[in-house]
Simulated scan of single mutants.
Amino acid sequence: MFSGFDLGKPAQITFTLDYHELLTGDLKANVNCHISYDPLRIVPRDGSYVHGDPNQPIFVHVQFQKNGPTESKQLYSPNGIISAPHIDVTGQGSMLFQEVLIPNNAEELIIWFSYLNPNTNETLYERNSDRPLFYFFRWPYHDAWVRKVDIIDSSTSSISSFELEVGTIPSITEVSVNWRVINAEESLKQVTSLTDTKQTDRDNNKIWTLQKSVPKGAVVRFKLNYEVNGRKYKNDNASQYFLAPEPQRPNVPPPPKPSTYQYFRQN
């Protein structure tokens, strides 16, 4: 089975100024999720917002089930008020932070943000909307994972086969792969549905397969899309995507064994 890039690492979701939501780490129930948020996504662009000012509060709101209870926390600046914040659309600039504990019974993570404008006493949402914009996350490494992947070359043809096998939890009803050959000119992204084999592994997880023709020697970059309870999610390997054929792990030699020294005491 393909080992996820961030499997077992702390979960973090970064909300960038260019309106991307980047999930890294191992998001799942019973862990803390670190929220990193660019306040310029939500505050008025009139220059009245001061980064990190607690009197200009931005809140993160979360739910763990559809129509479940809501938890709200104020985002904070670890460096306090910053009069000249560093602006970076990729999330590497001055950000606000908070942590959310995902309970054991969580079915998903639903997130939205609000800003209380102290000048007007008006609650604003992202993109100057009067309604919340909701973001939905699940547990990608534990919902849908790569069991096998390879590029199979033919000895008699210039065409190879991109072959993928995916495992999922039983409740997933649809799986597709968003993929592209990255070492061929003018190769466009494709989205292809996987076939439910109607087979399961020993843990009763579903098995899905795909076989597509690609140029000989192709390298395919891909991510998984899947559907649970009518909602779509993705596993993009912590924004790193997956590769076929799988990259070879470096053969790093083990560290040398420590030498045994004998110490002699002179009398």
Rank of each mutant, 00 (worst) to 15 (best):
F5L: 07
K9C: 07
P10L: 10
I13P: 07
T14I: 14
D18T: 14
L22F: 09
T24H: 09
T24C: 10
T24S: 10
G25L: 08
G25W: 05
K28V: 07
N30R: 03
V31E: 07
N32R: 09
C33T: 12
H34W: 12
I35D: 06
I35Q: 08
S36P: 13
S36N: 11
Y37F: 15
L40N: 07
R41F: 01
I42K: 07
D53A: 12
V60I: 15
H61L: 13
H61Y: 13
V62E: 05
Q65M: 11
K66F: 11
N67S: 11
N67F: 12
T70L: 12
E71M: 13
S72K: 13
S72A: 12
Q74M: 15
Q74I: 14
Y76F: 15
N79V: 14
I82N: 07
I82D: 01
A84P: 05
P85N: 03
I87A: 00
V89I: 15
G91F: 06
G93H: 09
Q98T: 15
E99G: 00
E99H: 13
V100L: 15
P103R: 01
N104I: 09
A106Y: 10
W112M: 01
W112C: 00
S114Y: 07
P118M: 08
N119A: 11
N119F: 13
T120P: 08
L124S: 05
Y125K: 03
E126Q: 11
N128T: 00
R131P: 01
P132I: 05
L133Q: 05
Y135E: 00
F136I: 09
F136T: 08
R138Y: 01
W139E: 03
P140G: 04
H142V: 04
V149R: 07
V149Y: 02
V149W: 04
I152W: 08
S154Y: 10
T156D: 10
T156P: 05
F162L: 05
F162I: 01
V166L: 05
G167Y: 06
G167V: 04
T168I: 01
S171H: 04
S171I: 10
I172M: 02
E174Q: 10
V175L: 02
V175N: 02
V175G: 00
R180S: 01
R180H: 01
R180W: 01
V181Y: 06
N183S: 06
A184Q: 15
E186D: 14
L188H: 09
S193R: 13
S193H: 07
L194A: 04
D196T: 03
D196H: 09
K198D: 10
Q199P: 12
D203C: 04
N204E: 09
N205D: 03
L210W: 10
S213K: 14
V214D: 03
P215K: 04
P215S: 00
K216R: 12
A218Y: 06
V220F: 00
N225S: 02
N225C: 00
Y226A: 04
Y226W: 00
E227C: 10
Y233T: 02
K234G: 02
D236Y: 03
D236C: 03
A238S: 15
S239A: 08
S239P: 03
F242Q: 02
F242C: 01
P245K: 02
P247I: 06
P247G: 03
P250S: 00
P250F: 01
N251C: 11
N251F: 13
P254K: 08
P255A: 00
P256R: 07
Q262K: 14
Y263S: 11
R265K: 12
